[in-house]
Amino acid sequence: MATVEVSFSALPVHVRTARLIVAAVARRSGVPETLLDEVRLAVAEACSRAVEAHQRHCPDEPVRLELSGDGRRFEVVVSDAVPGDDAAGGADIDPVSAASAPGRDGSDPSAGPADLGLADAAELGLAVIQGLVDDVKIDTTPKGVQIRMSWPLRDA
């Protein structure tokens, strides 16, 4: 299947659009129905993280989403354009502690957009991705962060 590429403005409303596109392409590519919820959630987490990073650092830059299938696996790459973003370093949040501790970024935990500190919210998203997806790779490059995830296809 040809690669599908989508660029979208770094706005929360477009994360839902990305979710719908990914679900449609994944289904068409042959991802089993039982995995579609997982694909949808993992991609939503990666896109939400990228949108929040862009809104803080480069709101005019689009978030990029690439979808491809090689006949054996369905691969999704979510790329942001925030150099040096610390996304890869922190998928080790303990949400249970976060429920009773102040934000790790020193912010007022009751004031952040996710009601956790910003760093905690992003890390919670990464923790969800790593808990959900068996094959995930997070690369921090000079151009930004890439989250690469893949799932098996039905007939692989």
Binding site: L41, A44, A99, S110, A114, D115, A121, L124, G125
Partner: peptide, 19 residues
């Protein structure tokens, strides 16, 4: 129909407020 970590964060924030 759908819940992500942002929603979890809001629930955790609510829990902290009521506690």
């Amino acid at each position: 129909e759908f819940l992500d970590s942002t929603g979890l964060g809001v629930l955790v924030g609510g829990l902290k407020r009521v506690r």
